[in-house]
């Protein structure tokens, strides 16, 4: 499944490293990413492919959330479908 990872929180060293390490550990491939600092807030969205990930989607969501908590940011993993539905005709 193609999914969107969204990361939001106070900027600090090592957020991207943490997110990417967790994804790599779970066999999730990063296809694209966009990151910026908005009003001192770290914001990042990534498009990922979870096809090779051995875990159920819900477990992967949980691992990403846990990883986010460790570095003080909010991480969500959602199917890409919802964004396509809303923003593409």
């Amino acid at each position: 499944m193609r999914a969107i990872v969204s990361v939001l929180g106070q900027d600090r060293i090592g957020i991207i490293a943490k997110v990417c390490t967790t994804l790599a550990e779970n066999q999730v491939n990063v296809l694209d990413l966009s990151q910026t600092i908005l009003q001192n807030y770290f914001t990042m969205v990534m498009l990922v492919e979870t096809e090779q990930c051995p875990l159920p989607f819900e477990t992967l969501q949980q691992r990403m959330e846990d990883a986010g908590r460790e570095v003080g940011v909010k991480i969500k993993l959602q199917s890409e479908d919802i964004f396509n539905a809303m923003h593409k005709i």
Binding site: L8, S34, T36, T43, L47, N84, M86, H87
Partner: peptide, 12 residues
Amino acid sequence: MLNARDIYETLD
């Protein structure tokens, strides 16, 4: 890829 702003809009 999807526009990052669109993604933030949906999340918001």
